[in-house]
C-alpha cells in the first residue's frame, strides 16, 4: 500500500487530491508521515523513525498508526 502518486502535499499540512478535488488538512505528525510516504518509505521504516523521534510507546503507535492508515484509505489517498 502506498500514497497515490498524484497527491499534492504542502509544508503547512494541506493535502490535495487532484483526481477527486478533495482537500484535507493534516496535523504535524500526520504531515510528517505523509511526507515520508510520499518519498516512498515503507511503513515499518516510518514507524521505526517515529519511535526514535517521538515520545510514544510502541503499542500506542500501533493503535494510532492503524487508525491513521484507515483514515487515509477512507479518504481515497492510498493505492495498493
Amino acid at each position: 500500500m502506498y500514497l497515490r502518486k498524484n497527491i499534492a502535499t504542502s509544508e503547512n499540512g494541506f493535502i490535495f487530491n487532484p483526481s477527486t478535488g478533495d482537500s484535507f488538512s493534516a496535523n504535524p505528525v500526520a504531515a510528517a508521515i505523509l511526507e515520508q510516504l510520499k518519498q516512498g518509505m515503507t511503513f515499518s521504516d516510518i514507524k521505526a523513525g517515529l519511535l526514535d523521534s517521538y515520545e510514544v510507546d510502541p503499542l500506542r503507535l500501533e493503535r494510532d498508526w492503524d487508525e491513521f492508515i484507515n483514515q487515509l484509505r477512507e479518504a481515497n489517498l492510498l493505492a495498493d
Partner: peptide, 11 residues
C-alpha cells in the same frame, strides 16, 4: 486556486 482555499480553510 486551491492554495487560496487551503489558506482560508486551514489558517
Amino acid at each position: 486556486d486551491v492554495n487560496a482555499f487551503h489558506q482560508i480553510s486551514g489558517q
